[in-house]
């Protein structure tokens, strides 16, 4: 192992880990506020990637500005999708047993996957952005700019979210709703609205992750959401369920871990090793690597 190789591997791990982190963060945010797993979260990521692909030809090729436009568009599409799902699937089942939203989001997952496969075909679709392209020197290594940008995006967005959640009244209201919705209502928080906003933000994160992974792989496809859900969920477990900082850390760790296992063990063992360790982790530290003990409200 030489230093350039190590840097290259680190950047690769952080790029894909960044995507996992965004998915996990959105998943954790939604789980935190609604206390229900959104199994169609990966399909939001997939649908947004397809929608952005559809509108991409209309975007001017303005380098970084196009990239920014793509991110913003993905966030908006994701937020809209999230609000529709919250209103259409979660809200009507608010008083139903816990299993109900799980079943219906699994149904939604299958529906969206098949719908996209029906409309667009189940093959790979090329997804290429005009920017970022090429490589840049990082110390002695030469790494793709795209990966650095993806990692950067996956750091900046959670940081902005963190500021929004801790420094604004709406952010405090979202956190309060996640901790104790009834008491939040006693403070005057419209918890129906905060769940909607949390769902929109969480889904926007999924949408952003979807276009980032599209750019990273160069393709989008109708079943891409399944991997996203599994990896995002794994990252959430690593970070500790309901822990937002943990979700980001968990995603990055997972990405790094995968790259290093693939590099120094074998790509054919990556998933097997990662998921075995995940099971061990769940048994030894159910609160996650990063998380504290699970708060009693969970």
């Amino acid at each position: 192992m030489t230093l350039p190789v190590l840097i290259d591997q680190l950047v690769s791990g952080l790029a894909i880990g960044g995507v996992y982190a965004l998915v996990a963060l959105g998943f954790a945010l939604i789980f935190g506020v609604l206390r229900a797993a959104q199994f169609a979260h990966g399909e939001v990521y997939m649908v947004v990637a397809f929608l952005v692909l559809a509108v991409l030809p209309w975007f001017p090729a303005l380098g970084p500005l196009q990239f920014l436009l793509v991110i913003v568009t993905a966030a908006i599409f994701g937020a809209i999708a999230g609000m529709l799902i919250e209103r259409g699937v979660f809200r009507p089942l608010a008083d139903a047993p816990h299993i109900a939203p799980i079943i219906s989001t699994i149904g939604l997952m299958i529906l969206l996957q098949n719908l996209v496969a029906y409309l667009k075909g189940s093959e790979l679709h090329r997804f290429a952005l005009a920017w970022p392209q090429g490589n840049v020197s990082v110390g002695p290594a030469s790494v793709p700019v795209l990966k650095l940008v993806i990692f950067g995006t996956a750091l900046v967005i959670p940081a902005l979210l963190q500021v929004a959640l801790t420094r604004t009244q709406l952010g405090r209201a979202i956190r309060a709703t996640a901790i104790d919705a009834e008491t939040a209502r006693l403070m005057g928080v419209n918890t129906a609205r905060t769940s909607l906003v949390a769902f929109a933000i969480g889904s926007a994160l999924a949408g952003i992750a979807g276009v980032l992974v599209g750019a990273l792989y160069g393709v989008v496809y109708s079943t891409m959401g399944v991997t996203a859900l599994v990896k995002g969920y794994a990252a959430t477990i690593i970070g500790g369920v309901g822990n937002l900082v943990g979700a980001v850390a968990g995603g990055l760790l997972l990405g790094l871990f995968e790259v290093f296992v693939a590099s120094y063990v074998s790509p054919r063992w990556t998933d097997a090793i990662v998921y075995t360790l995940l099971i061990v982790l769940l048994a030894l530290r159910p609160q996650g690597l990063v998380g504290r003990a699970i708060p009693e409200k969970l």
Binding site: R172, R175, A176
Partner: peptide, 26 residues
């Protein structure tokens, strides 16, 4: 009209200041 609920129900993971800011949410 504001209710102080039984069992205090402070938002344990939030700071004291955040709790107070939430009290003044309206």
């Amino acid at each position: 009209l504001v209710l102080v609920p039984e069992g205090r129900r402070v938002f344990g993971e939030l700071t004291v200041l955040d709790n107070l800011y939430l009290g003044g949410y309206t």
